[in-house]
Computed example of a mutant assay.
Amino acid sequence: MKKVIIIHLEIKQESRETFIKETFSLTSKSREEKGCLEYNILENCYSENKFMIYEVYENNKAFDDHKESDHYKKYINFVMPILAKEPVIDIY
C-alpha cells in the first residue's frame, strides 16, 4: 500500500532563502530514491514562511529507507533550528 506524508512547516523569516535552497536539494535527492513516487514542496500563497512538503512512497519500506538516508538526516539537523513552530505531520 502507498505511503503519503504531508508536512506543514513554518520557518523563521531570516532563514527563508537558505530553507528554500536546502529543501530543493532534499527534494531532488529524494526523488531519486527507489520507491519514491512523488516529492514536492509547496509555498503557502498567503504566508511566505509557510510551506508544505508532499511525499508519496510505494510502501512502508520505501518510506523507512528514505528516513535512513544521509540527505534526510542532514536535512532534519538543518531544518529543526530554523522552524518558527513545531511542524504538523500527517501520515496516510
Rank of each mutant, 00 (worst) to 15 (best):
E58D: 11
M1N: 00
D90K: 05
H66T: 06
S15R: 08
E48G: 11
N44C: 13
I76Y: 00
S15G: 03
S30W: 08
Y46G: 08
E14S: 14
F63M: 13
L83G: 06
E86T: 08
A84P: 03
S30I: 10
H8A: 11
L37H: 03
E33V: 09
K2E: 06
E32N: 07
V79I: 15
L26C: 11
F51L: 12
K61G: 00
Y54L: 15
K85I: 14
Y46I: 11
M1H: 03
S25H: 11
E43F: 01
K50F: 00
D64W: 02
V4D: 01
N59R: 08
N77E: 14
M80D: 02
A84N: 11
D64Q: 11
E33G: 01
S25P: 00
C45W: 02
I41S: 03
S28G: 02
E43G: 07
F78K: 02
S28M: 13
E58T: 12
S69Y: 03
N59Q: 09
Y75Q: 07
K85M: 14
L26V: 14
K67D: 07
Y57A: 02
C45D: 12
D90T: 13
D65N: 13
E14K: 13
S47I: 13
S15N: 12
R16T: 06
K12F: 00
L42M: 11
I91S: 05
N49A: 06
L37I: 15
N60W: 14
N44R: 06
C36R: 02
E22L: 13
S47K: 12
V56W: 01
L42K: 03
F19I: 13
K2F: 13
T27H: 01
I53L: 15
Y92T: 04
K67C: 15
F51S: 06
L9K: 04
E10T: 13
D64C: 07
Y57M: 08
E38H: 09
S47N: 14
K85T: 11
E17T: 12
C45L: 15
C36V: 11
E38V: 09
K12G: 04
F24D: 04
I41Q: 03
L26K: 06
K12D: 03
E58G: 02
D64S: 05
D90E: 08
N44E: 05
I89Y: 00
K74N: 14
F24P: 04
K21H: 09
N60K: 14
G35T: 07
D70H: 02
K67L: 15
Y75N: 06
K74E: 14
I76N: 02
E55K: 01
I82R: 04
K29G: 00
L83W: 05
E58R: 10
I5H: 00
D90N: 04
T23Q: 03
S15Y: 03
K50D: 04
